[in-house]
Amino acid sequence: MYGVINLLSIKGVFKNFGGLAALQNVNLNVRQGEIKALIGPNGAGKTTLLNIISGIHRLDKGEILFKDEKINNLPPSKIANKGISRTFQHVELFGNMTVLENIMVGFYARNKTSFFMDGFKFSFITDSEKKIYKKSREFLEYVKLGHKINEIALNLPIGEQRILEIARALATEPGLILLDEPAAGLNIRETRELGEIIKRIREELGITILLVEHDMELVMNISDSVAVLNFGEIIADGTPMEVQKNRDVIVAYLGEEEEVQPGYNVNT
């Protein structure tokens, strides 16, 4: 289903926040074409890791390679232009713009225009504008938001906001997309739909996905591999089955004293 080439390699990454170690020697590989989940208890450093990959935080030590190119400590926009797009735990949409406009802005990354020259293009609608419009419509149909193109993004229910945010990330035509708790705040039906969309993105668009998620059912259903982060360290990395059986993981989630049955399932 996926190759053996590492699309993203995180090597020995350390990050401190004012003396508090958020990440300690994190090593993680995301292979081309896979859906990789990053799980772990609250405060384990999952979002910090995503923020470091996407350039929001600088790392203290270590390196991050994307397509064998060092990308650590580049500004977020540069990293996005290299092909890593993301969504946020607290949805970051362009709230006052329409659904369609949100996507059209997403296409900007691949269709840059010159700021000052834009005012001189005296045609009613430029060709690139038409192209972006058409592509955006197609995209919204693809994620099943086609009937809501003219709605203001803020007025969408949270489930659709999350899908819109993913669609906008896709519009930048990334190689890798980082999803930060995409199922937070969604009900069971919405979460299933989200899972379907994530799978389709990988299968039909060939985009690699790294997601941070608390919803174990979603994680175990869609991921090819799962890494577990606890107190800033990776304590397990493997297939969903392997991770579920890993003793360290069970301890991290449930605590040391628990009497653990063999084959205990984390997602129950």
């Binding site: 926009s77 406009e101 990354a109």
Partner: peptide, 18 residues
């Protein structure tokens, strides 16, 4: 459009390569 986007969220703008 990008200017209006920046009005709403700097973070999201950066994340899509602006």
């Amino acid at each position: 459009r990008i200017l209006r986007a920046m009005h709403d969220s700097d973070t999201a703008c950066e994340a899509i390569g602006i």
